[in-house]
Computed example of a mutant assay.
Amino acid sequence: MDTNNELRCIGCGAVIQTDNPKEAGYTPKSAYEKGVKTNQLYCQRCFRLRHYSQIEPVNISDDQFLKLLNQIQDTNALIVYVVDIFNFNGSIIPGIQRFVGKNPFLLVGNKADLIPRSINRSKIKDWLRQRSNEIGIKPLGIQLISAKTNQYVDQLFKTIDQLRGHRDVYIVGVTNVGKSTLMNQLIRQNTGIRELITTSRFPGTTLDQIKIDLNDGHQLVDTPGIVHHSEMAHYLNGKDLKIATPQKPIKPREYQLNSGQTLFLGGLARFDYVNGHFKKGFTIYVNNDLLIHRTKLANADDVYKRQFGKLLTPPSEEYQDSFPKLVRYEFKTSYKSDLVFEGLGWITVPSNVVIAGWAPKGMDVLIRRSMI
């Protein structure tokens, strides 16, 4: 099929083609002809994802994604950098300053609806500013939103309009931070069209730039997310991912532990209270449906070996051979801290204890001053 006119899938941005089912943008000729007539042209991959939650891999390399992102440095634009409050480290695009050139940033912390009300929002903003400064980003401002529930999106839209001047707006971020969901909300506010762009929990849904005209001749542009191959979504099916990933406001769970006790977060992660004086309180902030199992530290290795995929789920037992091994990270706290399992949540721990967090190889475990 001739793609000189570059008809694009309105769901993922890929150039439509009818020749190769394994390449991005493929759609059967019958669907292509129907889509052209109705002006609703989705590729087969987006159609199946939207209607049947089926994800199909495509031959798009990391280099191709980076090449698309590199084009931003030659523009005059406002960059809206979307990060996941639950997975800041995993939200970082390495070398983002190089990709976007001298264009200014607005940092957006998504999934604010999941944060317990006991956590002060200004404290989260301060924390995001400190972390962004550490990686060399000086944002014009920081806003917290929930793209899924449309919380504070109208305020974000007003801020974008104030900051962009006569410039395009590029939405950037890694996969699964909620860029396309946010883009859909912004499109709805600007045009009234709902759910134009394909969204899912799976990485790499958007395959090319998706451009929406603004009312002053400039454009709102959704960019493909940089894929982090250590992301939990690469190792779980849709059912398990729904249990692992927070869906609703988190309800903190309190555990009183003696030194030498372990908590399993399903089969996905593990927390050890290695050493400390007296019984201590530990508060867990993870998805409300994720099973937490307590056992003795001395028995923990054996419990994990025997119960992985059975008592300790997710993941399902079918992942026994393919799921990455858990890697141990030990910390000694000097003040009240959060032990963070990037992408899952965190555990608030007291001062003056020795603890260990275990997570699948390639996924970060880190310590920070407590948010509460």
Rank of each mutant, 00 (worst) to 15 (best):
I119K: 04
I135K: 06
F86A: 06
F86C: 05
H166R: 04
F157C: 01
T149F: 09
N133D: 02
I124M: 02
K111N: 02
K125A: 11
Y152S: 07
F86S: 11
K111S: 13
I124T: 12
V108M: 00
L156R: 05
Q151C: 12
V108G: 10
V172H: 14
I145P: 00
L156T: 05
R129N: 09
W127D: 07
Q155S: 01
Y81Q: 02
N110I: 10
I171W: 03
R131T: 04
I137Y: 10
V169S: 00
L106V: 05
I171R: 14
I145K: 02
L144R: 14
D126L: 07
P104Q: 05
V100K: 10
F105W: 15
V80Q: 13
V172P: 14
V177N: 03
D126K: 11
Y81E: 01
G136I: 09
K123P: 15
K138N: 08
R164H: 06
F99S: 12
N87T: 02
L107I: 08
I135R: 13
D113W: 04
N120I: 02
Q155D: 12
K148V: 00
I135H: 10
T149P: 08
T149W: 01
L163G: 02
Q143R: 09
D161W: 10
V80N: 01
R98L: 13
G141P: 15
V169R: 00
N150V: 13
N110A: 13
D154W: 11
S91A: 06
Y81A: 04
N176F: 13
G141W: 12
R167G: 05
G136P: 10
A147I: 13
A77S: 14
Q130E: 04
D168Q: 00
G178S: 06
R98N: 03
D168N: 01
F157K: 10
Q143C: 07
N87V: 08
D113I: 15
A77H: 03
V100H: 07
S118N: 09
K111F: 02
S146W: 00
I79L: 15
K158P: 03
I96S: 11
R117H: 11
Y81C: 08
I79P: 10
A77Q: 08
V177T: 02
E134R: 09
I96N: 15
A147F: 11
G141K: 01
L163E: 04
G165R: 09
G136D: 13
I142M: 09
I115Y: 10
L114A: 15
T149D: 07
K179G: 10
D126I: 14
L78M: 05
R167E: 11
I96E: 15
V83I: 12
T149G: 02
I160M: 05
K138E: 04
L107W: 13
S146N: 09
R98D: 01
I142V: 15
F157A: 15
I124A: 00
K158Y: 12
N133G: 06
V108K: 11
I92G: 09
K102A: 09
L140S: 07
Q97A: 03
R117K: 14
T149K: 14
D154M: 04
D154L: 15
L163V: 04
N110G: 08
I93T: 04
I93C: 12
P139W: 03
T149R: 12
I119D: 03
K111H: 09
H166D: 14
Q97V: 04
F99W: 01
D161T: 06
K111E: 15
Q162G: 14
P116N: 13
G141L: 08
V172A: 08
W127N: 05
V169W: 07
R129C: 15
F105Y: 05
P94E: 14
